[in-house]
Deep mutational scan, measured.
Amino acid sequence: TGYYDVLGVKPDASDNELKKAYRKMALKFHPDKNPDGAEQFKQISQAYEVLSDEKKRQIYDQ
């Protein structure tokens, strides 16, 4: 599964769309709200870390 799929956004998503999707998913799977969501929360955080950084995103998109 790709990072875009993890966040539920298209590859041409804007920074604002990425942030909005990340916040929505992070709230849904945060371990405090969803004890079984810890692994998914890590994936969401990693996806956002890469896609929100312009240089990392360019490398990922290659």
Rank of each mutant, 00 (worst) to 15 (best):
residue 1 T to L: 15
residue 2 G to I: 10
residue 2 G to Q: 12
residue 3 Y to T: 00
residue 3 Y to M: 02
residue 4 Y to D: 03
residue 5 D to P: 02
residue 6 V to T: 05
residue 6 V to G: 01
residue 6 V to W: 07
residue 7 L to M: 08
residue 7 L to D: 00
residue 7 L to C: 04
residue 8 G to A: 04
residue 8 G to L: 01
residue 9 V to G: 02
residue 10 K to N: 10
residue 10 K to H: 11
residue 10 K to C: 15
residue 10 K to S: 12
residue 10 K to F: 07
residue 10 K to R: 13
residue 10 K to D: 09
residue 10 K to T: 10
residue 11 P to K: 09
residue 11 P to E: 04
residue 12 D to F: 05
residue 12 D to C: 15
residue 12 D to T: 12
residue 12 D to S: 10
residue 13 A to Q: 00
residue 13 A to Y: 04
residue 13 A to C: 13
residue 13 A to I: 06
residue 13 A to P: 01
residue 14 S to I: 03
residue 14 S to M: 03
residue 15 D to G: 11
residue 16 N to C: 15
residue 16 N to K: 13
residue 16 N to P: 06
residue 18 L to A: 01
residue 19 K to C: 14
residue 20 K to I: 15
residue 21 A to R: 00
residue 22 Y to R: 00
residue 22 Y to A: 02
residue 22 Y to H: 03
residue 23 R to W: 13
residue 23 R to D: 15
residue 24 K to Q: 10
residue 24 K to S: 12
residue 25 M to G: 07
residue 26 A to W: 15
residue 27 L to W: 10
residue 27 L to F: 08
residue 27 L to K: 13
residue 27 L to E: 15
residue 28 K to E: 12
residue 28 K to S: 07
residue 28 K to R: 09
residue 29 F to Y: 14
residue 29 F to H: 04
residue 30 H to Y: 05
residue 30 H to A: 11
residue 30 H to Q: 06
residue 30 H to M: 07
residue 30 H to D: 11
residue 30 H to R: 10
residue 31 P to C: 09
residue 32 D to N: 12
residue 32 D to S: 12
residue 33 K to D: 08
residue 35 P to C: 09
residue 35 P to T: 04
residue 35 P to K: 08
residue 35 P to M: 06
residue 35 P to W: 03
residue 36 D to C: 11
residue 37 G to L: 13
residue 38 A to L: 12
residue 38 A to E: 09
residue 38 A to I: 11
residue 38 A to Y: 11
residue 38 A to K: 08
residue 39 E to C: 10
residue 39 E to Y: 09
residue 39 E to W: 08
residue 40 Q to W: 11
residue 40 Q to D: 09
residue 40 Q to F: 14
residue 40 Q to S: 09
residue 41 F to W: 15
residue 42 K to M: 08
residue 42 K to I: 11
residue 43 Q to V: 12
residue 43 Q to G: 04
residue 43 Q to C: 13
residue 43 Q to S: 08
residue 44 I to K: 00
residue 44 I to M: 00
residue 45 S to P: 02
residue 46 Q to V: 13
residue 46 Q to P: 01
residue 46 Q to S: 06
residue 47 A to K: 01
residue 47 A to F: 02
residue 47 A to G: 03
residue 48 Y to L: 04
residue 48 Y to H: 03
residue 48 Y to W: 11
residue 48 Y to N: 03
residue 48 Y to P: 02
residue 49 E to Q: 09
residue 49 E to G: 05
residue 49 E to K: 11
residue 50 V to M: 05
residue 51 L to G: 01
residue 51 L to D: 01
residue 51 L to A: 02
residue 51 L to N: 02
residue 53 D to M: 03
residue 53 D to P: 00
residue 53 D to F: 04
residue 53 D to S: 07
residue 53 D to W: 02
residue 54 E to V: 14
residue 54 E to S: 15
residue 54 E to M: 13
residue 55 K to Q: 09
residue 55 K to G: 08
residue 55 K to F: 12
residue 55 K to T: 14
residue 56 K to R: 13
residue 56 K to H: 04
residue 57 R to Y: 04
residue 57 R to H: 03
residue 58 Q to D: 09
residue 59 I to A: 12
residue 59 I to H: 12
residue 60 Y to H: 02
residue 61 D to I: 03
residue 61 D to E: 05
residue 61 D to N: 06
residue 62 Q to I: 09
residue 62 Q to P: 06
residue 62 Q to N: 10
